[in-house]
Nucleic acid binder design. Structure first.
Lengths: 137, 137
DNA sequence: CAGCTTGTACGATGATCGTCGTACAAGGGT
DNA sequence: ACCCTTGTACGACGATCATCGTACAAGCTG
């Protein structure tokens, strides 16, 4: 893409609690983080989440997560590989990520998530070639 | 006050993660929660925090915390006694409150807090009888 | 009772947020 | 070379938010 340098990430010691909590308080972003945490180590492209929003909104949410220091983005080809900054988060806010994730599992995030990805799979099967559209459209 | 019944509180099982995270993502509210957690068991009136905002804003923040299920409010005389719903929070989101509070200590909340209360003390000493005014006014 | 204190209710206002559409850039296929 | 896929940038729109001022209610206390 056309960002002159690499992508801006906050330093590990500069992570702000308020920003992280705010980033995690949105259902879509929580969904992203949950999925990212499910299979750690592996890299996920932005499009590999079955998010019920458009590309623009997707970019926005990933930006919020990145600028809060929750995720790390690394460009590769036309895509961006996303990874959870688990070590940095654990160092600065010990235990926070884990209990938020555990709380998210107990609650609704995973349910919504599996629903969404199921729907997106169906949609892809019905209309192959439609890469966009907010899950149900 | 003129609320017909007692004050509305969400049930312990109905606490929503998003709402709690959002409630905790504001610096003023985090300050409230931090102070409330410092001396648990004791009740704090809304005015006993050295908050850098007006009464109206104060009411608003306490309402947000209450409706998110973070605090419990009990009317007594002309005031309201606030208490942290630690048990309910711990039951629904185990560990969350503790690590947020610990992270808040490490960060800035306590510093801002002591500063603010210091200022309010000075202000009170200089102009006794001025109960309102956002810390510096 | 009159006044003071504590907090609520009800706008109003400016800022931020989540969402979208359109246009565009960059890289990988054929 | 051409398109297609992936993602960004920018502008717009409605909703929510944090803040405030003013007015008022409820309970103490002189």
């Amino acid at each position: 893409m056309h960002t002159t340098e690499s992508i801006v990430h906050p330093a590990a010691e500069e992570l702000e609690l308020g920003a992280v909590l705010h980033a995690l308080s949105d259902p879509v972003r929580l969904q992203i983080v949950a999925k990212l945490a499910q299979s750690d180590e592996a890299d996920h492209t932005c499009g590999s989440f079955g998010l019920p929003v458009t590309k623009s909104t997707c970019t926005h949410h990933f930006k919020v997560l990145r600028e809060a220091g929750v995720i790390q983005q690394r460009p590769q080809g036309t895509t961006r590989l996303n990874r959870l900054r688990r070590a940095d988060l654990d160092a600065r806010f010990p235990g926070l990520l884990d209990c938020v994730l555990k709380a998210a599992e107990h609650a609704d995030v995973i349910a919504v998530d599996s629903e969404a990805s199921l729907e997106s799979v169906v949609a892809a099967a019905v209309a192959p070639g439609t890469a966009d559209s907010p899950a149900v459209a």
